[in-house]
Nucleic acid binder design. Structure first.
Lengths: 356, 356
DNA sequence: CTTCCCCGGTAAATCGGTTTCGCGCCTCGC
DNA sequence: GCGAGGCGCGAAACCGATTTACCGGGGAAG
């Protein structure tokens, strides 16, 4: 028989209140509520009583107390450069799917390419006991944390970090083949910022594919997106704003107009570039073809709509989160160091036959 | 004299280890490290010993233990519809500034206009003991949480919620004056989704300003952004993608082409609209002027560049976070119900004189 | 002469859960 | 008849911090 003590669930109910009210011990109540294997001998009758009371009194276990004991927070830290639409949004939509499914939440920390923050945030999040880290598009070579790490779009050879990377060779191959078949031979390149891990790998793929298809790369037609030192510290100015692509293209045009195509590091830069080209009297795609990278939401609606490489960013986020969760649940098992995903190539209006 | 016990700080150090090692009690160490007023009688000598040992042994207080005791988490919940560039990014850049300054972190939860999630997320975050909520552009009328709430771009008359809102009358006044002065009399309107709180207030301002300047609004030229029922549930399709503006403008054009200007609920919709207009042979701004709202990053680089209302979103985020933090620190004090901020108006290429 | 506070700290309670250990009773197998 | 083991549950340890109550002597205030 139940020997209900406190008839009144007056204020906030915790485990003790609930147990008292049921005339049971905290142990029993806890075992039932967590469906713990240690308490499998508890009869269905008692279970029902407990569950009923818990829902009726709206019992919510205290997150801190539970986490303190189990030493896990059910949350991960996400480290990203910024909250840009082009990249962050699409990756996170995949990440959130998986995290939500596992009842995980996440802290976002944007380092803005600031070295101090890149050091501090991992530490601060470790103090908040995140169960793991997800690195987005961030330099990750010196990260040293006592929890699993998955790096998306980084190429981090640190032991214990799982990398989710794009097949840049395939991406570049599709883009350059496309341009090459359209007759383009003098192609300008806008490289990504030094700070972004993808930049260097993308560039190496470009060099390799160019060699494969016999395309000469003129150093005069190569320009690099780099906000002064490569590490922006200007406040207010968005590091990936179109204006950077705009100004850079102007300076490229000042050096040379002898190219029929421009391959940009990303769509945002391409959008800036197109404006600069037009203002210089070079229509796109009639005079110059422009190819972007990422396929941001508005790429299809820009005019001209952008020919671009589409990264499966959502899928990358999803895979990354899956693996992170698995690694958290299974701290000792072995996991792959690198997972490679394939890009698509989307042909739109911004590319066309090379100008005679 | 120190009576150091454990000479070895072998594994992870907690308060007990640290205290033992110093030959002091946990109390003393805690009081020193927290610079607590209760321990002001502790001499500088001891303080130094404690501080030195803490840094040397790299002592990090356990976040859960501390939060359990103090019942505050130093984190807030941010509720937003999605992670869109147009809105979320700019607001959050202001929010993060303030939160970081106060050593706060935040959980992001995107409800995607899903009613269930709108109910669940606040509950889940309350269980995680967030110290407060920041609502971005989200319906907030039924939110019932035991912590302070600040709603940005909502107009929530619930007691205890502080609203940060735009002066829509001023925004609309500037936009319509601009078009009116350019000779536009037949203006089409693309209203925002029912679900977005701003939509209805913006529309009321439009009606009022139209009356003030003697502008007739033809119901045939009014169209509403609404993904079917107003609450999207399609997965994958971004609720604020340009394609919605695109398709909607096509359906508007099917009804009537008798307008010389189009005022869109936001820039993303405007971008979609411009493509639809062009495909229909209506050049922008020669045949139709288009005015957007928000001033997203690429608005200036789109072609034509967008004439648009710029919300001081970063400032709104900043003010919102400030007030939230103040309210958290000062639970009983009275705070304003509403804070109104002023928009700017940015004239660019997408608007021009009304077509004869 | 009393009362109060200050010194430099400590012991112990507290926050609210989870988890180990083990109790008494009953049944089953041998 | 007796040990093994399952049943149903509770006492208590534990996670790691913060915080209250208090120590006994001495000096200042009233």
């Amino acid at each position: 028989m139940a020997k209900a003590r406190s008839p009144e669930p007056t204020g906030h109910v915790n485990l003790r209140i609930l147990a008292d009210h049921l005339g049971l011990s905290q142990t029993t109540v806890s075992l039932v509520l967590n469906n713990s294997p240690s308490g499998k001998s508890i009869p269905q009758d008692t279970r029902n009583r407990v569950l009923e009371a818990a829902t009726r009194l709206n019992y919510r276990p205290n997150y801190f107390a539970r986490s303190l004991r189990q030493s896990r927070s059910m949350s991960v830290g996400v480290l990203a450069p910024d909250l840009s639409e082009g990249y962050f949004t699409r990756v996170m939509s995949g990440v959130v799917q998986e995290l939500t499914r596992a009842h995980y939440f996440y802290f976002t920390a944007c380092h803005d390419w600031n070295r101090e923050l890149l050091d501090q945030y991992p530490r601060m999040l470790v103090e908040r006991a995140v169960d793991g880290f997800l690195l987005l598009n961030s330099p990750s070579d010196h990260i040293a944390v006592p929890v699993p790490v998955v790096a998306i779009s980084a190429h981090c050879k640190v032991a214990g970090v799982t990398n989710i990377v794009l097949d840049h060779h395939s991406a570049v191959e599709q883009a350059l083949h496309h341009l090459h078949q359209l007759g383009h031979r003098r192609i300008a390149f806008k490289r990504g910022p030094r700070a972004i891990p993808d930049s260097v790998f993308r560039w190496q793929s470009i060099l390799q594919v160019a060699r494969e298809i016999g395309l000469r790369i003129d150093p005069n037609l190569v320009i690099r997106i780099d906000n002064t030192s490569g590490w922006s510290s200007k406040t207010g100015s968005h590091p990936m704003a179109p204006e950077i692509g705009y100004e850079l293209t102007q300076s490229l045009l000042a050096k040379s107009r002898d190219f029929t195509a421009l391959f940009c590091f990303n769509d945002i830069a391409a959008i800036g570039a197109i404006r600069a080209l037009r203002e210089a009297g070079l229509s796109v795609p009639q005079k110059v073809s422009v190819v972007g990278f990422d396929d941001v939401l508005s790429a299809a609606y820009f005019s001209p709509s952008l020919t671009t490489v589409r990264q499966p960013l959502t899928e990358m986020g999803q895979r990354g989160a899956q693996i992170l969760l698995e690694r958290i649940a299974n701290r000792d098992k072995q996991f792959p160091t690198e997972i490679v995903v394939k890009p698509d190539f989307v042909v739109r209006e911004s590319s066309g036959p090379a100008a005679g």
